[in-house]
Design a binder for these strands. Structure first.
Length: 228
DNA sequence: GCGACAG
DNA sequence: ATCTTGTCGC
């Protein structure tokens, strides 16, 4: 079982938990900028369901963005205890992700998540949830918007436009490659939005999605193939 | 009430 | 997420 807090809870309890933990998000990197630049180990996490939907495969890959190679990976399989509900994704995916992370020997500088961080109705998406529970730096990198609106960013790699919800900027739409759809980057925990964007950009060498996310996706998909 | 809705 | 073959392009 996972520590931290229960995962087999009701919908109302999950929402209250998000409101409670939301105040613990740290929107800056406590480490110095110079120190963060030296850290090249970035992890990506992802999950996939078993074909019958009763199990979750979680995977994590640590990517060295300087050498551009995978240096470590870990995975886990857990029972699915919570349904997929937009806004409550963390309660379905995090148990498997956390168990996968516990299998790592190295400590990455930051973890990129396949989903939102602050760009969430209650400002507490999966990336925030993971970062707060483990007290680590985390980044949300989603393929679609959940809440808020934004203009289309310029078509060149690196161009971005803010995601606005009400009167606050909750993330950015970021063009990671020329001519591809943008990804939606937001703060998870212990990073600034600027550093989150920088990390995502340095990890998108060739494709739309950050390399650590692509590798983690590949890992869990392969696990399901061989165990279903 | 109606539409939107990460993976 | 998933249903799904070929096909256009580097």
């Amino acid at each position: 079982m996972c520590a931290f807090h229960p995962w087999d809870i009701t919908l109302d309890e999950a929402i209250q938990l998000q409101r409670k933990l939301g105040s613990l998000v740290v929107m800056v990197n406590p480490e110095s900028e110079t120190a963060s630049l030296k850290c090249s180990l970035i992890a990506g996490v992802d999950t996939v369901e078993s074909s019958d939907g009763t199990a979750i495969y979680g995977g994590v890959v640590i990517w060295d963005r300087e050498k551009e190679v995978v240096v470590e990976q870990s995975s886990a399989r857990t029972s699915a205890l919570f349904p997929y509900i937009p806004g409550l994704l963390a309660f379905r995916e995090l148990p498997a992700i956390i168990r996968a992370l516990e299998g790592l020997e190295r400590t990455p500088h930051a973890v990129i998540c396949d989903g939102h961080g602050l760009a969430h109705p209650r400002r507490f998406g999966l990336a925030c949830h993971l970062g707060v529970l483990l007290n680590i730096s985390s980044i949300g990198c989603a393929k679609n918007l959940l809440t808020g609106n934004c203009d289309q960013p310029g078509h060149e790699r690196g161009e971005a436009s803010p995601i606005i919800d009400g009167n606050e900027i909750i993330g950015v739409a970021l063009r990671t490659q020329r001519g591809v759809k943008p990804v939606y980057v937001s703060i998870g925990n212990r990073v600034s939005l600027e550093e989150a964007v920088s990390i995502v950009l340095t990890c998108t060498v060739k494709y739309r999605l950050p390399e650590p996310i692509r590798m983690a996706h590949r890992l869990v998909t392969e696990l399901r193939r061989g165990e279903s």
